[in-house]
Amino acid sequence: MIKRFFVVLMRSIRPPADRLRTVAVALAVFAIMNLSWAQGEAEQELERRVKAAFLYRFTEFVTWPEEHLPDPGQPFVIAVIGPDNIADELRQVVAGRAIHGRPVEVRRLSDEGGLATEHIVFISDSARRRLPQIIRAAPREALIVTESDGALAHGSIINFVLVDGRVRFEIALDSVERRGLRLSSRLLAVAQAVRTGPP
């Protein structure tokens, strides 16, 4: 009941269509910009935005074990390890939205030190060096999302890649199973590549 009320409240504050339109416009702009093959500051910002939007959309296609989800009313936590700007971007995306019926909280961390009960851990490319440690330190049922080449080998579940200037992602199914999560086959269908085990 409370949850429901919460959802309705959030909606009334900011209708979803508006935000979705924002995302779509962003996508379109991003696609056009990519044609230039220039990796300027503007392009990087767009890429950040798309990744933030994807991060949020992933939750629709991932199922966490019910016992691992926070109690109703408690926030669904997304940890962002890396620069501030991507966390800010993500905060904008999730503002007023719920994930699996819970309010969303975005926590920025500089390293694995503060990891505790997160459900998604996004590790920015800037933390590439400490990637294995961070992944090992992450909670067992956390969805690990990275943006570094070869990250899947270290235990990442979803790794963003750039294909023809578009943001795509690859998925490691073996890691998904290890962490006790379930991914929708529809997500697998749009993945750039699906890894089922160590090569």
């Binding site: 994807f54 296609f61 529809r186 269908a189 749009v190």
Partner: peptide
């Protein structure tokens, strides 16, 4: 739905 969501 996923294809639309992830711009594919």
């Amino acid at each position: 739905a996923a294809a639309i969501a992830f711009d594919d």
